[in-house]
Design a protein around this nucleic acid. Sequence first.
DNA 1: CTGAAAGCGCTTACAG
DNA 2: CTGAAAGCGCTTACAG
Lengths: 348, 348
Amino acid sequence: MKDIANELGVSVALVSYVLNGKKTNKINARTAARIKALAAKMNYTPNQIAKSLKTNRTNTLGLIVADISNLFYSSIAKYIEEEASAYGYQVIYGSAHESHDRFEQLLNVLLARQVDGLILAIPENAEKSIHELTCINKPFVVIDRKFKNAPKAPSILLDNYDASQQIVKHMAANGYKRPGLITINRKLCHLKERKDGFTTTCKELLKKLPFVYELHEEKLEEEMHHIIRRSLYEDKVDSLCFFTNKIAMAGLSEIAALDVEVPGTLGVVCFDEAEAYKLFKTPVSYLKQPIETMSKAAVSYLINRIEHPKEKPSITIKEFKGTLVVKESSSKRSLSLVKRKNQHLVRS
Amino acid sequence: MKDIANELGVSVALVSYVLNGKKTNKINARTAARIKALAAKMNYTPNQIAKSLKTNRTNTLGLIVADISNLFYSSIAKYIEEEASAYGYQVIYGSAHESHDRFEQLLNVLLARQVDGLILAIPENAEKSIHELTCINKPFVVIDRKFKNAPKAPSILLDNYDASQQIVKHMAANGYKRPGLITINRKLCHLKERKDGFTTTCKELLKKLPFVYELHEEKLEEEMHHIIRRSLYEDKVDSLCFFTNKIAMAGLSEIAALDVEVPGTLGVVCFDEAEAYKLFKTPVSYLKQPIETMSKAAVSYLINRIEHPKEKPSITIKEFKGTLVVKESSSKRSLSLVKRKNQHLVRS
DNA sequence: CTGAAAGCGCTTACAG
DNA sequence: CTGAAAGCGCTTACAG
């Protein structure tokens, strides 16, 4: 900027005004044009660091997800990035892998980089950050989670209770009578609501509690190996619901190895979409979260907070309905049809 | 920092020295202790923006990949993040989706944020950025690509020719005689070398050219639908090699829908690992890239360039050998065994 | 219409 | 052992 000013014999201030489109009506059009031309020619890009130091705004949002290599979160990241960029914001993100230490470390890094706001999938036991962020008055929004002990934290997530209800209704309507659910051993409120919705609806519609399997994320594969066998051969479940993407991957992989008939012997419904389902022998039913809508809601809420800090916050907790995408894996009635189609196509 | 200085009646400079561990031997231990204590108590975190403006270093690396939701790149990102963080660097990244416009836009954003160095999966037709980065003397390294017209750009990638050679040798050894390859219609040098390695080795070992299918990324699924059928029913291939992760997903999905016998009717080998392969009825052979090694090599090269700008660069192009992970999908000989195992396990 | 000047929160060479 | 001062590259209220 100094170079441009010197070259043209004007002040740095003038260059700044022109390049930022300020006071345009008061600036000599020819001077402005000369400045713009030279800036373009010199391939000038403003130093965001300096700009940020002065304006106290980085136009950057921080995003912390559980695991960016999981399609659910990478989709969220994609939509958030898209939406943020429409508002002129960048996104920087990281994965906390449900670790409360890693989360705080990441959070500190993002804060030190002066992000203007934060979108957070907070892991269990990290609720105290909510309080800290509120204290330093840094805008944030929680996604995919909510916390009983922080009811005022703005949160955007699926209506998990309703989602499970949809799934059980569908299973019951398709004649499944001994459903099981497989979830993970974490005290996260949204998982609890998934379970509650599932259990309560089972009681209502099937007069029976579902089989509940909880596994530990650290030895997911190993435990899944046994759980699938136990559920099929001992508990005689006729259907299973996988509560997350990752659980579904491990579970379906075991089911594929055992070559269990789906949906005949076992009906299957998963939470969240995954590209991998396409490779499973039977197309898999899943509960689709409105990821795009939720991501955009999070960004627009956050940017509103950033740009209009004095307005009263509009949301506290907002839950969005999911959509059950029904495929063959949970439709008993379509079974005979599937068989015929496959036999026709088998080549030897 | 100013608050700390005022509170303790010392100068800002002194606080800075203490907190950065400079001149420790010359500073009164008690004053230092008081400063540290107060900083901790006030939960002081230095403003990285201000620090960067002064030091001209952000301790940030920029990473541009083709698509962060692809396991290959998300693994790269993960390892790069890990390695960088060991050196005290952050990583900010984005996906260019093989678009040359999007790439340049991202690159500019990263440069404006003053990243200290860049790791880039450059899309086709974006080689001119290489020249620009060289001009402004910004350290960078290309990953997963190389460019004929920029032979001096530091590049880290798979030895793609050798990888294809390994695959064809394996196919030939397993009795496959009519192999096909499915790749994508892009003029990227590493894909060309994959193809060349494949073709040349086919000629050598099978005295025959492979069937080559090139598809357009925009209508991948649609074209794949036809290509799989054509290759099986018209060209009568007995084996297929999918040249990327994404192609493999689309191809295997079609194969699953047709219920083609793998490896009996069709042998299958893919480039790159994917979690999804676990859901395919037959475990899938794939060529594994040494992602961790390559990521670390990229980071350590780059940080060396950043921290010792005067040293002569050590690499220009470095190619790493891949490992063929053989599973059932490409092992004709194991076929009878597979069948028996499956029959035993089928339940009705 | 334009410029001189202060200041964002740090670092660091220099002086004492 | 410690502090005053300059400066990183910008923005912006103020004066002319």
